[in-house]
Amino acid sequence: MIKVEKIFKSFGDLKVLKGIDLEVKKGEIVSIVGPSGAGKTTLLMIMGTLEKADSGKIYIDGNELSKLSEKRLSDFRNKNIGFVFQFHQLLPEFTALENVMIPALIGNTSYHDAQKRAMELLDMMRLRDRAEHKPAELSGGEKQRVAVARALINNPAVVFADEPSGSLDSDNKVELHRLFFELRNKLDQTFIIVTHDEHLASITDRTIHMIDGEIID
């Protein structure tokens, strides 16, 4: 479902990625681990089309992303890719429901349909009673579950998560990790997760180890 071929990336003289090859099947939960500076987040950002590789190819659902114009790439990202970041990145002036709806509205979904889908997802996240609360009124775990709902609103082919439980306490980490597997079982959702969390890495379907810009296994 995702295929990465010979991805190279440098920042000035620093070679960050050195010819990465990777394949991920639909419905897999894959973790990417390694020391700081290994290139994990850069690889995730390139696969998620938020950064460009110097060379190489990325395919998602059979689409070669390098062949898409900026406009088509932006549309593809909105409809096919979800993101979850370490610090949730919710917009503080909007409610949980509105935050979840935003990607759907950007993708020209009607307000009614976006609202209905967002409420379904918040219900799945056990957050229906928090829908009208703004981020400042939510706990850390609740904010991250809202972020997961937002990532899922357009039924993406894949969700990329960068240290999604890095800012959570132990109980909320366990809850979030359990949620990923529930979503995979219910929605056949694919997750690629950069993490330093050893427990999360140990329970994913597959763990990719990176060192110095290369996959070592």
Rank of each mutant, 00 (worst) to 15 (best):
N155D: 09
Q89D: 08
R178L: 01
I153R: 05
K79L: 04
A131Q: 09
H112P: 00
K25E: 11
G37P: 06
A114E: 01
I192C: 11
R128Y: 13
A131P: 15
S202E: 12
I106C: 04
A104W: 00
E175W: 03
Q144A: 01
E175D: 05
E98F: 04
M1S: 02
T190K: 14
G34R: 03
L183P: 15
V146P: 10
S55Y: 02
A131N: 08
S202Q: 12
A149F: 05
L127V: 09
I193H: 04
N172Y: 05
I208W: 10
H133R: 11
P92K: 06
M47L: 14
K67V: 01
L50W: 03
S110G: 11
P35A: 05
V174E: 10
A161Q: 02
K9T: 15
H88D: 09
F191D: 03
K186H: 10
G62T: 14
A201V: 01
A118W: 00
D171T: 04
G27M: 03
S167E: 14
G107I: 11
K3E: 12
T195N: 11
E163K: 12
K40F: 10
P164C: 05
T190Q: 13
G82L: 00
L17H: 08
K143T: 04
R145M: 01
D21W: 06
L176E: 08
V158H: 07
T204S: 13
T195P: 09
V146E: 06
D169T: 12
S139V: 10
L138M: 01
K173G: 10
S202A: 10
S66G: 13
I193S: 05
N99M: 02
D212M: 07
I102G: 01
K26P: 12
K26E: 11
V158P: 09
A131I: 05
I7P: 14
K71S: 07
V100N: 09
N155W: 02
M45R: 12
A131E: 13
R150Q: 04
N172M: 04
V16P: 02
D21F: 08
S66P: 03
D212N: 09
